[in-house]
Design a protein around this nucleic acid. Structure first.
Lengths: 326, 326
DNA sequence: TTGAAAGCGCTACCAC
DNA sequence: GTGGTAGCGCTTTCAA
């Protein structure tokens, strides 16, 4: 390529990289660009990476791909990365491959840094990350000692949902919580309590059940709460909301006439449920964007300030919530 | 690392790669392995790739990530790739970045080959792939002139679904078809007709509407077909089935008492719908596995025979289908 | 059985 | 403003 243009390789490299530290005659530059274009020249990224010890690539590690939350985070991260001149290498960690995934990405010099979303316990995650020899940013969770993370304000989101239900006149509002131990679960539970308090409703532990993040968990927890005769329920996720709704249908409770159901996070599946689910939108795509740019900044030697939790979006009132009965 | 073990780099390389063409004294090998272990040595994959002109990495390109079909294909591909000593680089193509995605992956020497799932038109896809300078295998579609592809037998799947509905006594079975032009849509329509024929039911074009692959499309198509008073409907996808169900609920049709609904492909969301959706399982994960191994074989210089369409899995009878009314 | 050395394609430094 | 060149970390051929 360089010899076709009649210039030295190094000159071609300067032009092609857009190096501005040294100037190149306009005519030469044009010739190089033209030849590169004609030959559809693409620099070998392996050689470049070997030389520069950078790949201009970020890795993103998520627990699952077919999950709207992570899919949106990936989209956001990819967009921000592209704008900053980075590619994104996507990886998901099947259960059991936890440690390996991070290791593979980081120890083989394929990525400059890592965006990590994980549902693992603190200790597991911490040791996995310790083995990663690259900078990383956590998404949707905090880990003591890991300074860079971007989280959603799920406390505010839960508060918002409770406010909506209370505004409809509900007083017996149940909560299908996430995992017992878990940063987000605690946040949401806290937001739920704050929401109750703001509405002047006393907190009743009997109206809270642990549902985890599966439909089965949601169903089990809802079944557990039926005897308490709640008139509304706030589920931690769309999936647990769906599980709860199936139990309600089976029990002959009408939604929303007998009971209102709301969930956190918004995704297309919310409108597919029956009745369509009232949700609070969460800026998951934004989370990916922010995480990626945080990572890139820290790769360039900056020490960015911690990012405050991203506030929830609007509450989307759909068919699953309505006025309190009676 | 080599000098720590007191051997030459080349000897270390031979041992670490498991090169059997030359023998190494057992003692030396043990020493190298031990030191490598102690230092947690990981070969630099960029340097290796630069030297060998191989990355032992496959790329997989899908239109969306939060789609159970593609997520399963990715899982399968990743599993097969890992077993064959390859990593998988996942990429999704936002609308508009169609050409670039394939180009970026293949022209920067980052992957040895590509697995491609695409919803694009033949011509678009063809020219994108022409620009890719690596071998590729198509998933879930055929493209004239592209010899390597792995498809699901969606014709058989549609046949199976119709057989189930006919077996329940339905005679007026509608079909929510996919895109007008499209390999899979045509296959499914064909299977639908074959299923009708096998059940001795005459094909009625008035019972077929184009729904595409969205909930809105499914809803629109279902609304269109209501005046035909079908007693059962086969939707091309889960999502269009969900759209159809929302219209049926709104119109006051009871599922399955007034109308049975079935969809193709199975995924957790099928059980979240109300009522839970009867589906035909499709071997999408297997598709990814087969595609990956096909690609690896063709990378090693083999010329594998074309793979016949993968037969559908079982029909999962859930709550959305029941005996024909009357 | 092991070592020496070339070279993959590029960047970055230095010389001119 | 441009060219020469060393060297990134590895594999592979050849020599010892």
């Amino acid at each position: 390529m360089a010899q076709t243009a009649g210039v030295d390789m190094s000159t071609a490299s300067r032009v092609l990289r857009g190096d501005v530290s040294q100037r190149v005659r306009e005519e030469t530059r044009a010739r190089i660009l033209k030849v590169a274009e004609e030959l559809a020249y693409r620099p070998n990224s392996l050689a470049r990476g070997l030389r520069t010890a950078r790949t201009d690539t970020l890795g993103i590690v998520v627990p699952q791909l077919d999950n709207p939350v992570f899919a949106a985070a990936i989209r956001g991260a990819e967009q921000a990365a592209a704008e900053l001149g980075y590619s994104l290498l996507i990886s998901h960690r099947e259960p059991g491959t936890t440690a390996t995934t991070i290791a593979k990405l980081s120890q083989t010099n394929r990525v400059d840094g890592l965006l990590v979303a994980s549902l693992d316990d603190d200790e597991v995650l911490r040791s996995d990350l310790a083995a990663a020899h690259v900078p990383f940013v956590l998404m949707n969770r905090i880990l003591p000692g890991a300074p860079l993370s971007v989280v959603l304000d799920s406390r505010a989101a839960a508060r918002k949902a409770v406010a909506h239900l209370a505004g409809l006149g509900h007083r017996r509002i149940a909560h299908l919580a996430g995992r017992d131990q878990g940063f987000n679960a605690a946040q949401r539970l806290d937001g739920y309590r704050q929401g109750l308090e703001a509405a002047g409703i006393a907190f009743d532990p009997a109206l809270v059940a642990t549902a985890g993040y599966t439909a089965e968990g949601g169903a089990r927890a809802m079944a557990e709460l039926l005897p308490q005769r709640p008139t509304a329920v706030l589920a931690a996720t769309l999936v647990s909301a769906a599980g709860a709704m199936s139990v309600l249908h089976a029990a002959g409770w009408r939604i929303p006439q007998d009971i209102s159901v709301a969930g956190l996070h918004d995704a297309p599946v919310a409108s597919l449920l029956y009745p369509s689910l009232t949700t609070v939108m969460m800026p998951t795509e934004e989370m990916g964007r922010v995480a990626a740019s945080l990572l890139v900044r820290s790769l360039s030697g900056e020490h960015p300030d911690p990012v405050p939790p991203l506030p929830p979006g609007d509450l989307i009132a759909r068919a699953s919530t309505g006025p309190a009965p009676g």
